[in-house]
Design a protein around this nucleic acid. Structure first.
Lengths: 354, 354
DNA sequence: TCTCGATTGGATAGCGTTGTCCAAGCATAG
DNA sequence: CTATGCTTGGACAACGCTATCCAATCGAGA
């Protein structure tokens, strides 16, 4: 009872193990295991009385399972790895929230890794994942058209999938894995079509060249313009960030007089664009319209008449976990699941005279 | 060579283990372990030739260590648990980014758990953490003055710390653990003092009653006002969110004519307040000043003359990891580390006539 | 040449859990 | 009363790795 071999307090009182619980309950370790951590084969629940004794003992000792031990015993962890570029990014954070919620409702936890858009780091991370025995891996970084890079990445992911982890890629890419995407192109096209009703001299602020996300947004947007008989006056490239938008507008400065809509391909860029436009002397939205993409929450409140596209970021979680946990026999059934984005066109506010 | 006992492809090619590497390199498993995963005692590096052979074999086989196995062998994982309320919150996401960066530079990874401000869930999470053998646990949820709740939480955390995980609490609270805090009160006071130079009829939009974060911000702000010989016209409580600020302004509506500064205790509340004020008919910032707290990035660009306080959110990571990894002999040395917040007072913009 | 200490490699056991098998108990049907 | 099938509990090995001890090797000093 009191002859605990570990020091009684302070550093390193070993947490109770199944063996401790079993001993306290007077059953074998195996029985305790079956009662407290019923596996997939939920049967073998034990008799009422033993159940109670074991559960009481576990409660009294404060037992909680050691997932690392489970992982090596079973050969697979109850975890999903989520790879994003940077957690401070609105999109990444929202996707993460959705994935965590979906994982939790399935009794799994999520391990998040950030690449900071470094191709080397990206490979290291995926490589290390192989040893971690995750159930699935969700790729939520923005992919590029850099073929050597993508090819190396693909190879590492294949090896990861061969080792038993289901790979799911969010968004379009050239990666041959299960995919959950959004109808970004058609949403971008519809946004363009709507905006083309009231604007005709349009400049596009695109993301980095070679980034798939940017590419499909621009492609869709241009298609929408084309449907209205228009084509953009200019397409400027920059980082998908506030500073990227800011710089892009200055790059465009000479031609701004010809422009009545600056269509940024991300909300963050749109904000940077607005700052630059104000500096240059264009009042937004009176003298210039700026649109975005992503539907970052606070902007709806602060930018009257701001049009954008709401991505179904939180829904990715459910969709990805479904793909990961779907029957193993359905594997290699790499059909793409496509979610819908929401086009949000807000009318320009009426000017109320001061 | 080719007589691999596992199926050649598809589901479940077991990832290579140390034993595989050792065999391929012609050394014992132990030697491979010492060369590839040198522990704390970094000595025993092996002879040059063996090193190379083992490393080559590991490279060729694509070996990566299984951290779960290390965890049960060593009795402690190379991980830090981070507990936040909701990852979509700007503060939580930024803290998380800082913690992840700091952990990574020390060769550890981070396990994030979200409580969604549910006291029961909070306890369950901490309880489960005990089995996970983390090196440290960072509490970044907002604590309350609900004594029963805090007491239960404290108890669970103590048991966690006894089991070997170092507990660090971010922000002030009644929890008796290592702490990393911010001089919130004095920052709030300084913000108030500065704003009191140009405003005299001030309403405070506080966070939820009983939340420590709100309490210290309000206390500091009132102290700053008092130093200027003022006291607030009203203190309204609400959620620390956009909707909370929105509602709080409507609660205040009858007295708004007497107010020249709405001091929100969070930036999100400030945005909601601005929306409500605009709806009611007060033009911000011309007819009413609104200030905030947190320094959410995009607001600086979109709200000219917006004053707020920048919290050192990213620095928490380094500070917390230092506390977690400091010498075990320094444990129970629960001195509080205090970081500095930055008061950002922006002058009201000049009205440029249209 | 011999002894000593330092360095290196390996054998063994163990970390906490589950999978697989086997034995015992029990009720039911023949 | 026995044969049958089902349920239940337990023994044993295994998962992949490291800690701890022990043996072998080596160089240097006596």
């Amino acid at each position: 009872m009191t002859d605990n071999p570990s020091p009684p307090a302070g550093r390193g009182v070993r947490p109770p193990t199944l063996a401790d619980v079993a001993e306290a309950a007077g059953v074998s370790l195996i029985t305790a295991s079956r009662i407290l951590n019923p596996g997939v084969r939920g049967t073998r629940s034990g008799s009422q009385e033993r159940r109670r004794k074991v559960q009481d003992a576990a409660q009294a000792l404060g037992y909680t399972v050691n997932p690392a031990a489970q992982t090596i015993a079973v050969g697979a962890a109850r975890t999903i790895a989520l790879i994003v570029t940077d957690i401070r990014d609105f999109g990444s954070a929202t996707i993460m929230a959705g994935v965590m919620a979906a994982a939790e409702s399935r009794g799994m936890s999520v391990a998040v890794r950030t690449t900071h858009d470094d191709p080397v780091r990206e490979l290291e991370i995926v490589r290390a994942l192989r040893g971690e025995r995750h159930r699935g891996v969700i790729i939520a970084t923005s992919r590029t058209t850099d073929e050597p890079r993508e090819s190396r990445f693909r190879q590492e992911l294949s090896s990861l999938e061969d080792s038993g982890a289901r790979v799911v890629v969010i968004g379009d890419s050239t990666l041959p894995f299960a995919r959950v995407t959004v109808d970004t192109e058609s949403a971008a096209a519809e946004l363009a079509t709507q905006l083309a009703l009231t604007h005709h001299r349009i400049a596009i602020l695109a993301g980095p060249e070679g980034e798939v996300t940017s590419l499909e947004r621009v492609t869709g947007f241009e298609a929408g313009l084309a449907a209205a008989g228009l084509s953009p006056i200019a397409v400027m490239h920059g980082e998908f960030s506030r500073d990227g938008g800011y710089a892009a507008v200055y790059d465009l400065q000479a031609r701004l007089a010809d422009v009545d809509l600056v269509a940024a391909m991300s909300d963050a860029m749109a904000v940077g664009a607005i700052v630059a436009l104000n500096e240059i002397g264009f009042r937004v939205p009176d003298e210039m319209t700026v649109s975005g993409f992503d539907n970052v929450p606070l902007l709806a409140d602060l930018l009257p008449g701001f049009s954008t596209v709401a991505m179904p970021l939180e829904q990715f979680g459910e969709a990805c976990l479904d793909r990961i946990l779907e029957d193993a026999s359905d594997r290699r059934n790499n059909e793409t699941v496509r979610l819908r984005a929401d086009v949000i066109v807000r009318p320009k506010p009426h000017r109320s005279l001061p």
